[in-house]
Simulated assay, not measured.
Amino acid sequence: MPGSNASSPERVTQTFSARLEGHFLTRYHLAESEADRQRRRLYQLAGEKFWQSHKDLDWRTIDTRQLPEQPENDPLCGFAAYEKQTPALRCQLSWQRHSMEISEILHGEQAALLVASQLVSMIKGSAGKLFISTQVSDEARHVEFFSHYLRACNQPVHEPSIYLQKIITQALESGVLPMKLSICHILIESLALARFRELRKFSCSPLMCKALSLILNDEARHVNFGTDLLKESCLSMPDTERQQLGLSLVQMALSLSNSNFVCQRIAREQGWDCAQLRRHLRHFHLSRPQLAQSRLRQFTLNLQQAGLMTAEAQALLQSLRRPTNARRLALQSG
């Protein structure tokens, strides 16, 4: 996977191998369905909403002397070992945590870029091919923004987490259209929408807030398109495959939305007591149940819209609302 690697500078790519079945159109002037017309409208909207980070954003507003996010959204705040540090070091550690989270977002956007480029060939209809080509352009712009943002803030690009790396590889190497669509548009895009809204709410950077508003408009189109096309694909899918896909997506979403690997890595580097940090993070999550709910709300809605909210998937999501399981999930994520 392209990108600099803070821990191993010599390793800058991750190879994957994919075999795809594509469709080359020989006839264009065919009667379109209402779904095709909606995809064509999304394609036209993408052209109208096109933006460029070097023209539409004011990069002069970046100030690394201030915290990247409001303290109330920083899981390290309140942790004794962190609070003992000088204000300058706390700011530095907050930027380190922020850069690791932005790196994770950058890798997710790159995954969406690569999967969308594969979907250009795999999708059958002309309207769908046209729209997904705009998503490739959108995702490239998102990758460019987050990469440029980290450079402008003098922060490195960190490797993706093992959770995200595994999911990205699965999406890229799969030759099955519903699997690619569901990981790209239901899993990655849904969680991205929730995280971008959260970042925009708590960011201290006017540049980041403006960029996220623009990116959120793009992502909304992608999710609209993906859930609609996936719903069509699910109609011809055997029930057992649909049930397994829905359950797998929920399990993947939980692994991504509840991981505290960033804080754990900082703790190890600083020589902090990791057991105490786990207890602190457990309390942080349990005292903010709305945080996990908001991160999964968009995913749940899109899973349902696509026809993948099977009984098994719904049972797993509902079980997490029980206090005992919520505590267990917080323990696992810490």
Rank of each mutant, 00 (worst) to 15 (best):
E48Q: 11
K49A: 15
K49S: 11
K49W: 15
K49E: 14
W51I: 00
W51Y: 01
S53F: 15
S53M: 15
H54F: 13
H54E: 15
K55Q: 13
D56C: 06
L57M: 03
D58P: 03
W59Q: 02
W59P: 04
R60Q: 08
T61F: 09
T61C: 07
T61V: 12
I62H: 06
D63C: 01
D63F: 07
T64I: 09
R65F: 02
Q66P: 08
Q66D: 12
Q66L: 13
Q66C: 12
L67T: 04
P68D: 00
P68G: 00
E69R: 15
E69N: 12
Q70M: 14
Q70T: 14
Q70A: 13
P71A: 07
E72S: 14
N73C: 15
N73Y: 14
D74C: 09
D74H: 11
P75G: 09
C77F: 09
C77E: 14
C77I: 11
G78L: 05
G78M: 05
G78E: 03
F79T: 05
F79G: 07
Y82N: 01
E83K: 07
E83T: 07
K84N: 13
K84A: 11
Q85G: 07
Q85W: 10
A88E: 14
A88N: 10
A88H: 10
L89S: 08
L89V: 14
L89M: 12
R90N: 03
R90V: 03
R90S: 05
C91A: 07
C91L: 09
C91H: 07
L93H: 00
W95A: 01
W95L: 03
Q96S: 06
Q96H: 06
R97M: 08
R97Q: 14
R97C: 13
H98V: 08
H98N: 11
M100W: 12
M100D: 06
M100S: 04
I102L: 15
S103Q: 02
E104T: 06
I105E: 14
L106Q: 03
H107K: 08
G108L: 12
Q110F: 15
A111M: 05
A111G: 04
A111F: 02
A111E: 02
L113H: 11
V115E: 00
Q118T: 06
Q118D: 02
L119T: 01
V120L: 11
V120Y: 05
S121I: 11
S121F: 15
M122I: 14
I123P: 06
I123C: 07
K124W: 14
K124S: 15
G125K: 11
A127C: 11
A127F: 09
G128E: 06
K129C: 00
K129T: 00
L130T: 01
F131R: 08
F131D: 08
I132W: 05
I132S: 02
S133K: 02
Q135T: 02
Q135K: 01
V136N: 04
S137W: 05
S137N: 06
D138Q: 00
D138H: 00
R141K: 14
R141D: 07
R141V: 10
H142G: 00
H142E: 04
